[in-house]
Design a protein around this nucleic acid. Structure first.
Lengths: 336, 336
DNA sequence: ACCATGAATACAAACATTTGCGCAAATTTT
DNA sequence: AAAATTTGCGCAAATGTTTGTATTCATGGT
């Protein structure tokens, strides 16, 4: 009972017409008569015809597939984004293939290589914590595969990107703390090769500056996003002679881990040291003692926008005049 | 600089040999001379040749792609499993395309239809909370597409499945509570069309029985896994004249939400009412007050096993004598 | 009666690859 | 030295679909 062998040839034979006529009929081509079309559709349904994607792909040179490479699926920020991407993409008849870099450059490169050899129509990428050069992404460009960066984007202007308004968000978050009368504010940032880390720092810096607060170099830490390093950097902050009263964390996961680090040292999170972070993930809703505020980045919406942009580029692929686009999604500081 | 057009024809032309020779050389066919092979590989590398998957697919009728349809990516249990699947699958040169059913039957059906029309080589599925009939899955079978069920599996014996030893786990979890001297143990289960719900109930039931504890019908509740319903069912439990002292929850998410429900009513989780759950997700590591114990199901390992099984079936596809296999992964009760 | 027009359909090439078969030349066996 | 086998490679068909061009047939205008 292998139905999969039915081709347009079978339909053509059944009706005694040409293969090309069947093909055009199925595509609703205007040059095919109405009755012929009806007959074709009837037979197609009866024989349980399913078009062979390989043949279509071969002819059209299009896979109707987009690749997504993100650092982690486990992080809700990314899985929410994927949901947004999937919704948009699949509504247009495309498929999504997902790879995780696990913040390793080597895995990221492998994923992209695989995208190239499977000839995806486009790629959405959020670079790994290790990525400092963009060789693989240049390869994509060489093969003419459209690319949209997501959240973790390169500094480079000449690329398509969808990102949050992080500088503004960090400014707001820092100001929020300062307005509570807190003056000793530290930042537990991400790795500096990620532009979103620099943006956080910039917003933090601007806020302190505008409020005439002094900036201490010791209050500025970066974690490589591993739990161990986050733990260590938080300990360093606590060990300072002037322990900070608040910490602005790279994201909720960093915040949660930093808070654990606190507890181990007998420091009570959000009482002794206040935490504010980025992402505002649903899991924080389950906590009795979440960060006192978190920047909502609307991951789902960001994903949607990235997908829409990518599809737009794919559709306009022949148009070489297309210039790279940057979409910035506004954030919102949520007080818990 | 569109390199993507390089075909074996170009390589053949460059070397002045036949296309078929190039094809065989690249496949390391024994009938091709060593020097020819070397030349072919050299030119292939130089021209940056990438095989066209569409053409291969068309000839071989194989996509080197497997479809995965899971209820949610957001749930760490599933994203961990996907990581396991991805690791195994991609090591064998396959790709993974992922769809989320969001616990909706209609989305599940759509995903499977899409898998059929994109001609995936196999499917791994964890059924939605709504699934009671398996029409779509039967379709897969009709098309001869191998299928492995994962975690949320049908009762049906005649299917391939990978699942945890849930009856045993529920028995252990319930016994654990009883041994603490707790006698009034409720269960906040998942929907009854999921076999894993029934298994939990069975283990719960057996444990109470073996300990000579009585079973109260009011202590047995099912949630449809939406937060609202979980909330409601937990409230019902609390409103009972004999409030339970402990609740065995379907999974960590249900537990966390039930615990929130407690707090709203002024009931202190794990003091007034103890919680034990399934999944033992990493997020519980971030909580100050997690369920007192959780059943580790080794999602990553389960994913690996499912992928291994699926690949095995794909490889043995011609062998019609293959009988459905059931892989059971042992669980472990983790005390927090 | 003749040509132009247009509709409806047929023909065939093209897409990139695999593979059965065949044909030489080279090597081994008798 | 003839026969048999092996080695190395080319030819061409086949996979299922799309699409440019050709063909047929009828209609209508002159």
């Amino acid at each position: 009972m292998q139905k999969s062998q039915v081709t347009i040839k079978d339909i053509a034979q059944e009706l005694g017409i040409a293969i090309s006529t069947v093909s055009r009929a199925l595509q609703n081509h205007p040059r095919i008569g109405l009755k012929t079309k009806e007959q074709v559709f009837e037979v197609a349904k009866r024989l349980n015809y399913v078009p062979n994607p390989a043949a279509i792909l071969l002819r059209k040179n299009k896979t109707y597939t987009v690749g997504v490479v993100f650092p982690h699926l486990q992080e809700e920020f990314f899985s929410q984004a994927i949901t947004g991407i999937e919704d948009v993409i699949s509504a247009q008849g495309y498929n999504v293939v997902i790879s995780q870099s696990r913040d390793k450059l080597e895995r990221e490169n492998r994923a992209i290589k695989s995208f190239i050899s499977s000839r995806v129509d486009g790629v959405i990428a959020s670079i790994s914590a290790e990525t400092t050069q963009y060789y693989s992404f240049k390869e994509l460009e060489n093969y003419g595969i459209p690319l949209v960066f997501f959240d973790r984007v390169p500094k480079d202007v000449a690329v398509n990107k969808v990102r949050g308004n992080i500088v503004e968000a960090a400014f707001e978050a820092t100001s929020f703390l300062a307005k509570k009368g807190i003056t000793k504010i530290a930042i537990l940032n991400g790795p500096s090769n990620l532009e979103i880390s620099n943006e956080r720092l910039e917003g933090y810096w601007k806020a302190l500056k505008s409020l005439n607060l002094s900036i201490f170099q010791q209050y500025i830490k970066s974690t490589d996003l591993t739990n161990e390093d986050t733990f260590k950097k938080m300990e360093e902050l606590m060990a300072l002679p002037e322990q900070p009263q608040a910490v602005l964390c790279f994201n909720d996961y960093v915040a949660l881990f930093a808070m654990q680090s606190c507890r181990q040292k007998g420091v009570i999170p959000n009482t002794d040291i206040h935490f504010v972070s980025f992402a505002n993930l649903p899991i924080t809703a389950y906590l009795d003692n979440p960060p006192i505020a978190s920047v909502e980045q609307f991951a789902y919406k960001m994903g949607e926008q990235a997908a829409i942009l990518l599809l737009k580029i794919i559709d306009a692929k022949q148009d070489k005049t297309l210039i790279p686009e940057e979409i910035i999604i506004d954030t919102e500081l949520i007080i818990h």
